[in-house]
Amino acid sequence: MRSIDGAVLDLKRLDLLATADSVIHRLDARAKVLTTLVFIVTVVSFNRYEFTALFPFFIYPVVTASLGNLPGGYIVRKIIMVIPFAFVVGMLNPIFDRELFVRIGPLAITGGWISCASIILRTVLTVGAAFILVGVTGFLSVCEALERLGTPRTFTVQLLFLYRYIFVLTEEGARASRARELRSCGRKGLGLASFGPLIGHLLIRTWLRAERIHMAMLARGFTGEFHSRQVSGFGWRELFYVAGWSAVFLVLRMENGAQWLGRLVTGGLS
């Protein structure tokens, strides 16, 4: 079960990246959360056949990740992991939507393929932006920012516990699975039959462990509030950051940046 262990460590790395120091890291978390929200809303607001106009939006994740010194390969790997899910969402589109959209030589592309590609592209953009947000802010600070922006505390605390529970669940899962694997001597063991009790045990074990962790939190005065060590306020820098990016997104929403660039290049060449 190295893969489960590895995946958890990989996810924890995202939180560790957030403890670094860079121009982006130093910004108030609220500015980053707001900008990411505006970004996501803009990206999903395009009609379902839009494809080319989405490409210029990559500027936001790329610039943020590079200013925040996030390792590109790592982020790309994380995003690739969610592409299959997006594909499942969009895979029926080419079957039902057979209206001809573009013809490139002998190749006919239907609206279904375009909308499927658009779903995948949007997923890459929005999930990428969310990953990068956590990578330059930290999950704790994101939740704190959401709370300061008016999200009810019950919701943010639930979100934080859910996030912590992922680690508890996967760690216990990896242990249980390792124990099963070692005793099944490289074969299938008892097969599917052994998975029922295994999952039941897993639930009880993670439950108990989560309770112990909760005890440890209560022992240290936890009252439903998380605090982070970053002290920052929403100043001019943050205002400029949010307004600047929002303006960029608005322009890219109104104008098809890819076509505009194409016209500029072909016009310049002719």
């Binding site: 924890k12 939180d15 560790l16 957030a18 403890t19 930290g138 704790l140 912590r164 462990r209 112990r212 962790i213 005890m215 440890a216 939190m217 240290r220 005065g221 936890f222 009252t223 509030e225 605090h227 982070s228 060590r229």
Partner: peptide
Amino acid sequence: DADDQLFMPTVFDDVAFGPFNL
């Protein structure tokens, strides 16, 4: 089990958890 007691991303955050709550 120290693993039950340490739940924050870094040692600093973990040690700071209590004082922040105070």
